[in-house]
């Protein structure tokens, strides 16, 4: 409901919308509309309310300054070690350095621009100035070592939750942790873990969320997108960051306390194309079959042509286009 109100305000950004009109559009009382507007105000949306005219969403502003960013982070994690850079080579590399001396339970390295963003296995990650959230989060999850791989799925659910709450946009998850919007990649997650044989010592999660990007290098054009490119709107990165950190805390607490069984249905609710034909490339071979989702450990299940189910722990998957 709240996201629907926000949606209507966004679609009519320069106009006042009366409480009466909003209530008829949404099928609720004017009091309910008023309450939802109050919640949006609490969350930092600048909504003008004028008697006899109604509500209007004020012009977008995105003040992603060091003070504002650190303020947002400390509001959730008062004791976190925080580093902000207006430009950095790679937040992930800097987070590794931060971890060497860090005593806090949580750490964050965030940059307004990455000049050498790091993807998995040394791949580069496109991250232009002012357009996205490029952040590396350091945590020390208290979980048994054999559960470690599930951390990637937990992070994916946390990002989906934050984006949904702030923007109303539903990202989908391509196993295990690529986040897509209309089938194109909108957010990349790189999870690196330091562990002993018997315990997880620390985890550095790099999250690159394309927010207000309007353009990508040509070679990425049919693969990558941003929240803005798919909706035609611009979003407040500061609010998104705040929601992201909240959501990471919530999902990881839940996971540490209750285990993967509670994360699994949340992950599945956002999962991309269950039941679709997919191609899964492992290092040795390529599997084609039906996406049968994940098992209780988060491992990908693919049903091969002979009806057998294969469990895949390491694979890159892609959807096979319909033959029509």
């Amino acid at each position: 409901m709240r996201t629907s109100i926000l949606q209507l305000l966004r679609e009519n950004q320069n106009e006042f919308l009366s409480g009466e009109w909003l209530s008829s559009q949404l099928g609720c009382s004017r009091t309910a509309v008023w309450k939802h507007i109050q919640t949006l105000l609490d969350r930092g949306y600048e909504i003008e309310a004028v008697r006899n005219k109604g509500y209007r969403l004020k012009v977008f502003s995105d003040a992603f300054t060091e003070d504002a960013v650190i303020g947002q982070i400390r509001a959730v994690w008062p004791d976190a070690a925080v580093e902000f850079y207006s430009s950095a080579s790679s937040t992930q590399t800097l987070a590794h350095r931060l971890l060497e001396t860090m005593t806090a339970e949580r750490g964050i390295v965030i940059a307004d621009e990455q000049t050498n963003g790091k993807g998995r296995l040394g791949r580069s990650f496109s991250s232009q100035k002012g357009e996205g959230i490029w952040v590396s989060i350091v945590m020390r999850p208290n979980i048994p070592v054999h559960q470690m791989p599930q951390l990637t799925l937990v992070t994916a659910t946390a990002v989906c939750k934050a984006v949904r709450e702030q923007t109303g946009i539903e990202l989908t998850i391509k196993w295990p942790n690529d986040l897509l919007l209309n089938g194109k990649k909108c957010c990349g997650i790189l999870t690196e873990v330091q562990s002993d044989p018997d315990q997880v010592k620390s985890m550095i999660v790099g999250i690159g969320l394309n927010v207000n990007n309007n353009d990508f290098p040509e070679w990425l054009f049919d693969k990558a997108t941003s929240l803005s490119m798919e909706t035609g709107e611009r979003f407040d990165r500061l609010q998104l960051l705040s929601a992201l950190i909240h959501s990471m805390e919530t999902m990881f607490s839940l996971y540490e306390e209750k285990g993967f069984s509670v994360i699994k249905p949340i992950w599945e609710a956002s999962a991309e194309s269950p039941g679709a034909n997919i191609r899964a490339r492992t290092r040795e071979r390529v599997y084609e079959g039906i996406n049968r989702g994940i098992d209780d450990d988060g491992v990908l299940l693919i049903e091969k042509e002979n009806g057998e189910i294969e469990r895949l722990l390491s694979a890159d998957i892609e959807k096979i286009p319909d033959k029509s």
Partner: peptide, 12 residues
Amino acid sequence: EAMKLMNEIEAE
């Protein structure tokens, strides 16, 4: 690596 989690193994 498993499920895109990169576990950096230290010698210990």
